[in-house]
Write a protein that binds this DNA or RNA. Structure first.
Lengths: 226, 226
DNA sequence: GATCGCCTTATTGTATACAAAATGGATCAG
DNA sequence: CTGATCCATTTTGTATACAATAAGGCGATC
């Protein structure tokens, strides 16, 4: 993470994910270069990466903007993620080792601990949750699947979802992880696929419930911009 | 396609897809810049794109090589494509207009004509086939799904598959397109999904049958290198 | 003779200067 | 007042020079 292009990537990405930059905001190379303290060359590199991850969109005339996600877009992203993570779980179920199952149990234990603190430690939840899903993706053993999924799971709106979870939803997520581990222990691909797919779809419904649709989403945007 | 980075992208991509460059071959920026007649800057741009499309892989020390696809990788790519194009067909079935159905019929008619000539006009088949699948993907109306799929369907090994089709397989492909159109006319998402998924899976089996596994694949590589 | 470490060389990363293209505004005609 | 065209300015694209880093070979030492 010491190369200039990595600095630029992380800096710009963080500005988008945190909400410091809002959807539709223009992104000039020169300005970003100054912010990041590097030249335009690594900034361009970083922007290409962010563009391929759909965090940035480019106009026909090659100008860049923070990507704007409609509720339909978000719904699509979750649908695809449910399908692909379901496939990952299905593949993992027949390949996973006892050692990796123990790792998953350790991650989920820490998720349970994060949930138990008051208020719930959402950052710890997210970090362990990320490890949990990443390990399953690795065990699935398909570089292509991993590449496709990583462009989906790193999206800012999806990422922020957990911040809107209720205590009950956090608990439910923890329990579903446990059930997934059970499916892995049995080596049951269909079960694992069903749990994982449902797990992701539930996350989407938690998200859309919390926001009561697009109107609420726009309200949140206005508030942050102010 | 007149920008230097597009020239570089197309030139390098063509060298990989055509087999002029073989899996594992090292790709130096300087050398490629000279071949393409541009400077290293647009070449680096192009290589980043090709890397995100998995045509190029990078070593831990940032050196680039032509990606090496094992039979497992190819199988994975087809599995994902079957799933995602199935989803596209499913979504398209409940959204497609009568005008677009007529377009699909026109494309498939030209596919039939390409098959009818002796020998079969594989390039025309591929072109109309591409239009057919692209239109369905557009009608599916998910930018994310389109982005994900395009990194899969443009892969060189998948693309060359049709060159190994037997006359019977070409006919079968044409008939499956017809059945897909029938599913669209009925507005039956499940039917469309099943046909499309099977259509892609059949393509994979045609491919693996033609190559009798990895040994045949290696033989072809040696022949081309000579 | 083998292995370790250094040094040379090749390759990639970054910065900067310049060229091309596009945007936005000002001016002028209708 | 509206609209269009042209120009100034901003923004992106490309080339090149230089810096940092990794690879490979050479020699020294055990």
């Amino acid at each position: 993470m010491s190369r200039a292009s990595d600095i630029a990537y992380n800096t710009i990405r963080e500005m988008i994910v945190s909400g410091e930059l809002m959807p539709g905001d223009p992104l000039g190379e020169e300005a970003l270069a100054e912010i990041c303290g590097v030249s335009r060359t690594p900034v361009r590199d970083a922007m290409r990466r962010l563009e391929s991850e759909l965090l940035i969109r480019r106009s026909e005339s090659q100008r860049s903007f923070v990507a704007d996600w409609s509720l339909d877009d978000i719904s699509d992203a979750f649908e695809l993620r449910a399908m692909l993570e379901g496939l990952a779980a299905q593949r993992a179920a027949s390949r996973i080792s006892a050692a990796d199952i123990r790792k998953l149990e350790a991650y989920n234990q820490r998720i349970g601990e994060a949930n138990a603190s008051t208020p719930a430690d959402v950052d710890a939840f997210l970090e362990e949750n990320r490890k949990f899903h990443t390990l399953i993706l690795d065990v699935a053993g398909s570089a292509r699947l991993k590449t496709l999924l990583q462009t989906l799971i790193e999206q800012p709106i999806i990422w922020r979802t957990a911040h809107h979870y209720s205590p009950h939803e956090l608990l439910r997520s923890y329990q579903e992880h446990d059930e997934l581990i059970a499916a892995f222990k049995r080596g049951d691909p269909a079960w694992a696929e069903a749990i994982m797919s449902g797990h992701i779809r539930r996350a989407f419904h938690a998200y859309s419930d919390a926001h009561h649709g697009l109107a609420m989403l726009d309200a949140e945007r206005s508030k942050k911009r102010a």
